[in-house]
């Protein structure tokens, strides 16, 4: 149930703070997203630059980089995911506790980017795990990463706690584990997780 904005402001003037459980819950979640201390390639350097004094990620409550996936809420796929690394990335994602989010940072994480034609490069991490925010760029500037944070916060804010559109961690049916690909003789097996990714249709 939403509270009338006008009424809220009016009550606020009177010194009464009115909110909904949903808003409070989402506010808490979005204000302390702890990213995982996890860098893959060049984009990771820009990710580190974002946490440093000049761009100061701490303003968004996300400066606490956790080395362990168990303590992290968000994974920034910062760089090229190779086929050798992809099983580890999926495994780390499986080890994170819900609610968990993924930001695909840079062209490589989205689609393979400049290295798309390489034999050992995974053409986009969304073949194996669901991604919440994509930021293009090679590398994306720190400002772009901040923008991704804001986008993710908006996304969390808009999530209802009940109903069809509720987030995955409130849905008992939703999958919690994603299958980890196995390195095969010529390629990863399977080459994609078809429950989260389908072959894009090219419209010409």
């Amino acid at each position: 149930m939403a509270v009338d904005e006008q009424l809220k402001i009016e009550m606020g003037r009177q010194g009464v703070f009115v909110t909904t459980l949903e808003e409070l819950y989402n506010w808490g979640r979005r204000s302390s997203i702890w990213p995982m201390n996890f860098g893959l390639a060049c984009c990771a350097i820009e990710m580190i630059a974002t946490t440093m004094a000049r761009y100061d990620l701490a303003r968004f409550g996300a400066e606490v980089f956790r080395p362990s996936p168990r303590q992290a809420d968000m994974m920034i796929i910062s760089g090229t995911v190779t086929k050798k690394m992809a099983p580890q990335v999926v495994r780390l994602y499986n080890q994170m506790a819900e609610p968990r989010y993924v930001i695909a940072m840079g062209a490589c994480a989205i689609s393979g980017g400049p290295f798309k034609q390489g034999y050992n490069v995974l053409k986009g991490i969304d073949r194996y795990i669901p991604v919440d925010v994509h930021i293009p760029g090679c590398p994306p500037r720190p400002e772009a990463l901040l923008e991704a944070f804001i986008a993710l916060q908006k996304k969390i804010d808009a999530q209802p706690l009940t109903g069809e559109a509720r987030p995955r961690h409130l849905d008992a049916e939703a999958p919690g584990e994603f299958p980890v690909p196995e390195p095969g003789e010529h390629d990863l097996e399977p080459a994609a997780n078809t429950s989260v990714w389908t072959v894009p249709v090219v419209i010409r």
Binding site: S111, K116, Y119, K123, V202
Partner: peptide, 14 residues
């Protein structure tokens, strides 16, 4: 894979 006649896995969207 660096051999000239290596055939890459066909997992490439164009």
């Amino acid at each position: 894979p660096m051999r000239r006649d290596y055939v890459e896995p066909d997992d490439y969207d164009y």
